[in-house]
Nucleic acid binder design. Structure first.
Length: 577
DNA sequence: GCCGTTTTCGGCCCGACTGTTTTCAGTCG
């Protein structure tokens, strides 16, 4: 009975919703929601944990009762408790909860008093004036709900971080010139490098906040100003995204940025822990509950330090083990952009890249890289002008010539070789043997069944010349679901054969993603961050890959393109000898 | 329902906003 963590998590999220409608104990509801979230973010599939006899109670937020329910669910594919709960409500009522402003109490009243169980029915009832006539509801409430329904319908998906961050750069560019502006930074999911963001929260401090707010609302990309005050403003930028800027007091900047960075789970866990120790944490500071004395913090570092914690980088503030680890001084030094010594996934105009080889090399030098692998597509990928064997050999010569004139950077010959649908490789072994780096990747027949796809990729990893598996799940954010593949088997094979797994930094890919990275590392795999650059500027996508790697708690020892070239070469050679 | 440097019971993050109100419930982040 196959059931993935995401599906298990959905059941417990649903249970949480239904218990809310029922008016159950709020703490019980939160317990289900916490467990659902923990399951959703678990690096390891629960199915595997059970098969290996691991105790599910080790998952934070999962106790006796929920552990038993998970086991039931996986054994039978059903959960009686859940089925019974669902039968108590008209189907569709939970969808009302998705409307901002409609909570469980309102949803239940709408159902019980007006017989509403869908968003469409609710919309009709508002237009008929039925909703406004309910006790303790009025015109304004009804209107607001209607507005929220309409907003929900036209609301775009969350946008990829790859679109959000450049926008932030542009906004800050326009504000930095103002005298007295400091600490401009994104907060929220953007600062934590989540793969997509719903809106953009920006913060900063200034001697004259009003002036900054004024300038913000007049930036060229601002399409509409939703609201504007002395210290904050909300705008809609071209494309429909909401951006909030909040200018805060210098002396409370630390606790404010900490609070607005989240995650919510991290903040809750932090507050619970220190509440037990007699401290009240909020965005305004830290209050000693015994004396009532409040302290403020100008920096986030000081805030964490006051709690006796090591600084916790935003990317790992997920409300998991990071707080315990920080208390033990056990937060590792996570990889940073300046640690990166080269890129192993780069295209040129030999295949579908936009720029000549020389330009890509100069761009890599300009970024201080010590090495660069040229990995154009292989022959089978016609749509990308994949290189024939002759062209591969010609490129090898070209690169060797180029290397003679270069002192500060070394160019590696390479290929992004297609793993064909039948599992065969797109270039013969004798050609692969002549290349410094072989990046293997799937580009076709992505609908294959899991077993076939897994066999296909494992087969490629068996080849002694293959060094790297690129974008292992092939997902495209918001466009294409990941392929069906047994990643656990792929990671184990990569470890066994000494292959590196790519973290593809292309913002539409971000593949592997955070929980995959965590699991790969647990299994002892080595990773690398590749940009998949098709132009010189795209080498800068590296920061997205680094952000992602940091979400996966990666240190330089985990990421091979932070290593000196000799060490990388030795790693790749292990299998070939 | 979960959990423990208050450990098998009694707690469970914190503050703000909104609307319909004579003191607050519901919702949100």
């Amino acid at each position: 009975m196959g059931m993935r963590n995401t599906a298990i998590a959905k059941v417990f999220y649903d249970i949480g919703d239904l218990l809310e409608l029922k008016g159950e104990n709020p703490f019980k509801i939160r317990a289900y929601q916490r467990a659902a979230r923990a399951i959703e973010h678990l690096p390891k599939e629960i199915e595997i944990m059970l098969r290996e006899g691991q105790d599910l109670k080790a998952i934070p937020g999962v106790g006796e009762a929920i552990a038993r329910k998970i086991a039931d669910l996986l054994a039978t594919g059903k959960l009686e408790y859940y089925e019974k709960l669902r039968a108590e409500f008209p189907p569709g009522i939970a969808t009302l909860l998705e409307i901002p402003g409609v909570g469980p109490k309102t949803a239940m009243r709408l159902t019980q008093e007006l017989g509403i169980s869908s968003v469409e029915e609710l919309e009709r009832a508002i237009r008929d004036g039925q909703v406004a006539s309910l006790f303790r509801m009025g015109e304004k409430t009804a209107e607001n709900i209607l507005y929220q329904i309409e907003a929900l319908r036209r609301k775009d998906q969350r946008i990829p971080i790859g679109e959000a961050l450049p926008l932030v750069d542009e906004i800050f560019e326009g504000l930095r010139a103002i005298p007295g502006v400091k600490n401009l930074t994104p907060a929220g999911s953007l600062r934590r490098f989540q793969e997509t963001v719903g809106d953009i929260d920006l913060m900063g401090t200034a001697d004259n906040p009003r002036q900054v707010i004024e300038a913000f609302t007049r930036l060229p990309m601002v399409a509409q100003v939703l609201g504007q005050g002395e210290t904050r403003a909300s705008v809609i930028v071209a494309g429909g995204l909401q951006v909030d800027l909040r200018m805060v007091e210098h002396e409370r900047y630390g606790s404010l940025i900490q609070y607005f960075t989240g995650s919510k789970q991290h903040n809750i866990a932090l507050r619970e822990r220190f509440h037990r120790q007699g401290l009240k944490l909020s965005e305004y500071g830290i209050t000693d509950l015994a004396t009532g004395k409040e302290e403020t913090f100008a920096t986030e570092e000081a805030f964490y330090q006051r709690l006796g914690l090591q600084y916790i980088p935003p990317e790992i503030r997920e409300g998991g083990e990071e707080i315990d680890r920080a208390a033990r001084g056990d937060i590792p030094a996570l990889v940073e952009v300046p640690d990166i010594k080269g890129d192993f996934h780069v295209h040129t105009d030999w295949s579908d890249g936009r720029s000549p080889l020389e330009e890509m090399v100069q761009a890599a030098r300009a970024r201080g890289y010590r090495y660069l692998a040229i990995t154009d597509h292989s022959v089978g990928l016609r749509i990308a002008q994949g290189l024939s064997v002759e062209r591969v050999l010609a490129q090898i010569e070209e690169v060797q010539k180029l290397n003679h004139g270069l002192k500060d950077i070394y160019i590696l010959t390479g290929t992004e070789m297609d793993i064909r649908a039948d599992g065969s490789l797109d270039l013969p072994d004798e050609v692969l043997a002549r290349l410094d780096v072989v990046v293997a990747a799937v580009h076709s027949s992505m609908g294959q069944e899991q077993e076939k796809m897994t066999r296909r990729v494992l087969g490629a990893l068996e080849n002694p010349h293959v060094d790297i598996l690129a974008h292992p799940t092939c997902r495209l954010l918001g466009e294409r679901e990941p392929v069906h593949i047994d990643l656990e088997a792929v990671f184990k094979k990569a470890v066994e054969k000494g292959k590196a797994l790519e973290i593809n930094a292309m913002p539409t890919r971000l593949d592997l993603k955070d929980i995959h990275i965590l699991r790969a590392r647990e299994l002892g795999a080595k990773l690398l961050i590749g940009t998949d650059a098709h132009s010189p500027e795209q080498l800068d996508l590296m920061r997205f890959g680094v952000g992602l790697a940091r979400r996966g708690w990666c240190q330089t020892r985990d990421i091979i393109n932070t290593w000196p070239l000799e060490k990388v070469k030795a790693f790749f050679k292990r299998e070939e000898e």
